[in-house]
Computed example of a mutant assay.
Amino acid sequence: MVAAILFSAKAIVAKMIYRYQVDAVTLTAFWTIFALPFFFAIAYWKAKVAQPLAWSDRWQIFALGILSIELP
């Protein structure tokens, strides 16, 4: 429920920010920089709890991220 509320709030905040003549690239950079610490915290937590990935899986995930290809 919290995730749905925050996801909805993102669009509202973006519309409010566009009033101040902020371009889309700057806004995207802002969202990315703001979210990065959360992703690092989640990755750190999951690294302690879950089994490590095999190197072949890591390279596949890296390649998919670079190429932006979705798995079928």
Score class of each variant (00 low, 15 high):
residue 62 F to Y: 07
residue 56 S to M: 11
residue 64 L to D: 07
residue 56 S to K: 12
residue 58 R to C: 08
residue 50 A to G: 14
residue 36 L to S: 11
residue 22 V to A: 04
residue 62 F to G: 09
residue 25 V to D: 12
residue 47 A to W: 05
residue 19 R to W: 12
residue 24 A to E: 09
residue 45 W to N: 13
residue 22 V to W: 07
residue 65 G to Y: 05
residue 44 Y to D: 07
residue 16 M to G: 15
residue 13 V to A: 06
residue 72 P to C: 00
residue 14 A to G: 02
residue 36 L to N: 04
residue 17 I to A: 01
residue 6 L to Y: 06
residue 12 I to W: 08
residue 16 M to K: 05
residue 34 F to H: 04
residue 7 F to E: 05
residue 48 K to I: 11
residue 5 I to G: 13
residue 20 Y to S: 11
residue 52 P to S: 11
residue 52 P to C: 06
residue 32 T to I: 15
residue 19 R to H: 09
residue 23 D to R: 07
residue 21 Q to E: 14
residue 17 I to H: 10
residue 3 A to L: 01
residue 1 M to Q: 13
residue 13 V to K: 08
residue 42 I to F: 07
residue 28 T to E: 13
residue 20 Y to V: 10
residue 65 G to E: 05
residue 13 V to F: 10
residue 29 A to L: 03
residue 22 V to T: 12
residue 31 W to F: 10
residue 52 P to M: 09
residue 53 L to P: 05
residue 12 I to S: 12
residue 13 V to S: 02
residue 70 E to Q: 07
residue 10 K to R: 12
residue 69 I to R: 08
residue 20 Y to W: 09
residue 39 F to Q: 02
residue 5 I to S: 14
residue 28 T to W: 10
residue 19 R to I: 13
residue 38 F to S: 08
residue 37 P to M: 13
residue 7 F to Y: 02
residue 16 M to R: 14
residue 17 I to E: 02
residue 72 P to M: 11
residue 11 A to F: 15
residue 15 K to W: 06
residue 53 L to T: 06
residue 40 F to D: 00
residue 15 K to F: 11
residue 26 T to F: 02
residue 22 V to R: 03
residue 55 W to D: 14
residue 30 F to L: 12
residue 5 I to H: 08
